[in-house]
Amino acid sequence: MANNNTVKWSRKHLLGLEDLSAQEITTILDTADGFKEVSTRTVKKVPALQGKVVVNMFIEPSTRTKTSFSLAAKRLSADIVDFSASTSALTKGESLKDTARNIEAMGVDIVVIRHTTPGAPHLLSRTINASIINAGDGAHEHPTQGLLDIFTIREMKGRIKGLKVALLGDITHSRVARSNIWGLTNLGAEVYVVGPSTLIPTQLKQLGVKISYNLDEIIPQMDVINILRIQMERQKAGLFPSIREYARLFGINAERLKKAKKDILIMHPGPVNRGIEITPEVADGARSVILKQVTNGLAVRMAVLYLVAGVSADK
């Protein structure tokens, strides 16, 4: 699926999909296409980043993203070090900037950071010389998740332009939603955000996104539904009445799926709350590409590491 729009990569950091042009996104996706094949080999390794050091700086817990970045770095033959700390430990003692400076002093080329505060990766990019990859900053962006979602859609549908993609659930608190919105709208998809009115910031309309509070009304037109995880504490905070009601109004089940196009894609960035936002039969069913997303995540993260490493090596 190589695309003629591929351009020479020139960004040292990947802070968000908002900053990227359609050509840059396509460049990452095409590069990921190439790396996908590596995972099918018996020796799942290329020497592209030999001698490079990548640090996983996860200030907020994560299993899937951290593992995915670790494996991606290893397949590129980079050295990868995990650094985990709770935000509270940092605020009590050493600052994020000092921690990063210390890590950098050990000779690090790329820092992958996950943090609870929007803009923490941007702060690091101003502080240290290493390349910064945003692995999720609060409710702001999660660019590699957005990219792997888009990669999976492109792989399955052969295009992005003109597709109707629904992001379903808690949009307000979702960095995955924001990265998807930037990337998908940029590539010409029609993006819908669907969920309880208390969990959708209406200002997102200004980004050309369509807002719906009624899943059943829009589901027949959708080509893709990307289901966001619903966090139980939102119910306790009074943002929706009950888990049961949420599941009834916004949960994806086999019954509801009957109204959808036959070739609809069901996606979920995980971790999945089975029985709440999605029933097990759908999660494991024929339309689900949830595990494909995870596999593709590896290729996309290899592509991102490879591209930013190339730029920092030039400089």
Binding site: P118, G138, A139, T172, R175, R178, P201, Q203, Q206
Partner: peptide
């Protein structure tokens, strides 16, 4: 609280 906060997730 507005468009910018919605976009930045703050």
């Amino acid at each position: 609280d507005g468009f910018i906060s919605a976009v930045l997730g703050l």
